[in-house]
Design a protein around this nucleic acid. Sequence first.
DNA 1: GTCTATAACACGATAGAC
DNA 2: GTCTATCGTGTTATAGAC
Lengths: 231, 231
Amino acid sequence: MDSTAARNILDPSRERLRGAAERLLAEYGVEGVSVRAITSEAGTNMAAINYHYGGKESLVSEVFRDVARRTARRRISQLDLVEAKARAEGRPPTLADVIDAFLTPYVDEADPATGRLLTHLILMHRIRPTTWTREIVADEFDPLALRYVAALGRAAPGLTNAEVHWRYHLMVGAIMIVLTDDSSHSRMRRLSDGACSPDDRAALRRELLSFLVDAFRGGAGATAGEGPSTD
Amino acid sequence: MDSTAARNILDPSRERLRGAAERLLAEYGVEGVSVRAITSEAGTNMAAINYHYGGKESLVSEVFRDVARRTARRRISQLDLVEAKARAEGRPPTLADVIDAFLTPYVDEADPATGRLLTHLILMHRIRPTTWTREIVADEFDPLALRYVAALGRAAPGLTNAEVHWRYHLMVGAIMIVLTDDSSHSRMRRLSDGACSPDDRAALRRELLSFLVDAFRGGAGATAGEGPSTD
DNA sequence: GTCTATAACACGATAGAC
DNA sequence: GTCTATCGTGTTATAGAC
């Protein structure tokens, strides 16, 4: 058994392609990565990508689907956790509990590449939706979203069902923008003269949480009356 | 003077290229539109794009810069308006006034293409920042952002300077996500079973405004105390 | 100032040897 | 299962006629 054979058994080229694609996609995005770059990073030849996956698109969609599924699972189990805890204490989960559960898989991400792939997928889908981004979002995130919308609705009884839906999406947008503030050229750091930085994960979590809790709680009675004065 | 000359005087190929680029970029995005498509739409030959603009990138960056500048101007003048009105009434602008001024150029956009170009620019910059997206955002939007941050800070005295900065960016994210919910495949409509739709511009404005007013007012005293129960 | 024609290159996909 | 070599198509950029 020569060394090539040994390497291939331990880490066959199919898996190496996946790993390479995941690394490169997180850094450069779909349009920024060629099959040549992937196969070169993986140490295989170009044909391998078509042999194992049937084409670039299948490979990247598989990578993104996996990331989406992984994150959705973490979010679901996080919600299970806070709901079980609240039930054990004989109270409904608070708004902060639910929002925090939603945030945790993003903010606590040990592997930053996962977060980047995820934001990349979602923003890509917003800019130019394709069949495969639509399928991934619908398959992997729709059930998750419905569970959270239900939980948020219970925790914010002052909001109508439609309001909770609107605010769920607005929440996702807020999270996306702050997670994609490129830390080496952070716009927020520049504008705030250093007072805010996306690298400060504790602050990020704290600010997101308080912003969102405020945003979801407002509807619970406190807000009536202040419209723009032009009304 | 033949008809070609007449057409060229009234609408020279340089201008036709700009118009074509603007239309196509709004619909298909930078990576989705080729030089061939632009020149074909403009009724010129391929070389014209290099002759007049020096390349595809220069053309698209010029288009995006113009859109950014146009929107920034509208936002600034909208803020001037509410500040003047408030001053005339001897009161500071309310949170709702300021946020509504920020929203208006997006939501009331008569030309939907402008809004699409704008969200496209911003999300593109988030996914894969390039030198030219960075320059446009910094040049055209930074002064605007600082003015709004200052106005928001005055209207929400309960928030620290850093909190206002954080929330400004979170606000932008919320706006972006809801403005890019593709109306022909709206995720929000699907998840809410039709209760929310991005086509309902009045609802969009109303929900955005109430969400954001709640989010910015929360810090003004009402929020202390409710952290996630895991604290 | 505008056009045709084409250069020079990068891309993804594939055929066929091993 | 892996490789080399190449095909066909796309891209931007440019040279040169008018």
